[in-house]
Amino acid sequence: MRRRDVIIHLGGAAAAWSLAARAQERPRIPKIGIIIPRSALAAIDNVTAFEDGLRQHGYIEGQSIAIVWHYADGNYDLLAAVVDEMLSAGATLLVVGGTTPAAIVNRATSVTPIVFVGVTDPIGAGVAQSLARPGGNATGLATAHEEAYARKSVELLKEALPWASHIALLYNVANPFNVNFLREAERVAPSLRVRIDPFEARTAQELDNAISAISGKRPHAVIVATDPFLAGRVKEIVTATTQHRLPAMFGFREYPLAGGLMSYGANLPDMYRRAAMHVDRILKGAKPADLPIELPTKFETVINLKTAKALGIEMPPSLLVRADEVIE
């Protein structure tokens, strides 16, 4: 079993790092605790990209750096305790993905350096004072505001389906940025002549209920907000939308790769790869307070043409030409 596939629980960090230290003869290597908001399976591309980034900067897990991974799978109740365990075990630096997890980790320590990935509005989330000079112990990579994602998602879906006037929106009501996503989608909807019908899902049972309710309402299409809990259930959501013949727009490319219709969003693996650079700079003496927060350099539109054909949808050539990836 690969080290990254081990999910730590309370009491696990010290043991894992102790084993890593005994496995090599240089005990004074940096110790990094990494909190991934999704499941190990759902996050594999992001984790692989981060590991590649570390190798590019000369870090080899178990040799020049010790790492303990924690996969939250969208459940954040134990994160504060997990952070405490990592800090007690001597973490040199913490890496955390996602807005809510980053806020929890940032509240847990004001001393240990933090590198965050994929945080929406770091200032609003309370993890930085400004993008140019974060000012505290945290820096990293931010995504665009949820409002921008929502607006673009509705616009692209409407372009793909000009006849669509009723769009269901699946979101996690416990995620405040999903709530902002919903508000912006509802705000822009009238100008595009569509109606947004929201459906909440923050647990597996609520997701089942939401899917059943959506199929009963028979909307013309579905938008799934970007959320770790929902992203961890890619296969389930894609299967449901396909079975009910619902064209769906997502925020991660994993969805169209799994058979969903299309997605728009930041390239998360690229962001995780770049996060390794922040880790390297901090380990070499840079202060998070002085390292500017980066914004995405890659936004991508991915379209699954096979799914479009199966749904009887003829995608506009103008949209296909602009897409970053078309799955045929």
Rank of each mutant, 00 (worst) to 15 (best):
A81T: 13
G124H: 08
Q129P: 05
P317H: 06
S215W: 04
R281V: 02
G251Q: 11
Y76D: 02
L94T: 03
R133Y: 14
A276I: 13
A21Q: 12
V95A: 12
L182G: 06
T100Q: 12
A142P: 02
A308M: 10
E159Y: 01
I223C: 04
A258T: 15
L156R: 07
R193V: 11
V234L: 04
G124V: 13
G58E: 04
V222N: 04
G216Y: 09
L305Q: 10
V96E: 05
A132I: 15
A210H: 07
V238D: 09
E61S: 10
I211N: 00
V326I: 13
N172Y: 08
E25Y: 05
T48Q: 10
H244T: 10
D52K: 13
P27A: 11
V279K: 08
Y59S: 01
L157R: 10
R193A: 12
M271P: 02
P101Y: 05
I313W: 14
D280M: 05
V95L: 13
T112Q: 09
T139N: 04
S39K: 04
H9V: 04
L311H: 10
K309C: 00
A23R: 15
S212I: 13
A150P: 02
T99D: 01
T100L: 11
L182S: 09
G97S: 00
E184C: 04
T99G: 01
A289G: 10
A275N: 06
N267P: 06
T120R: 13
A240P: 07
G251T: 12
V154M: 14
F181C: 03
E186M: 15
S215C: 08
A16H: 01
V95H: 14
E294N: 07
S130Y: 14
D5I: 00
H278C: 09
N46P: 00
K306I: 00
G251M: 13
V111I: 12
V95K: 07
S263G: 10
R281H: 09
Q243G: 08
G74L: 06
D280T: 11
I60Y: 09
V6G: 00
E159K: 06
A108V: 07
I34C: 04
D270H: 09
K306Q: 03
F250H: 11
H70C: 02
V224M: 08
S263Y: 11
E147M: 03
V117T: 07
E159T: 09
E254V: 15
A81S: 04
D52Q: 14
D45C: 00
K31S: 12
I123R: 14
L54K: 12
I35F: 14
S263L: 12
V82W: 11
T297V: 12
E294Q: 12
A16G: 07
L161E: 03
E328F: 04
E300N: 13
S39N: 08
D227T: 10
S18Q: 14
V83P: 05
L320D: 00
K217M: 05
T301H: 07
A289I: 09
R281F: 02
V117R: 06
G312D: 05
F229Q: 02
K287S: 07
F250I: 03
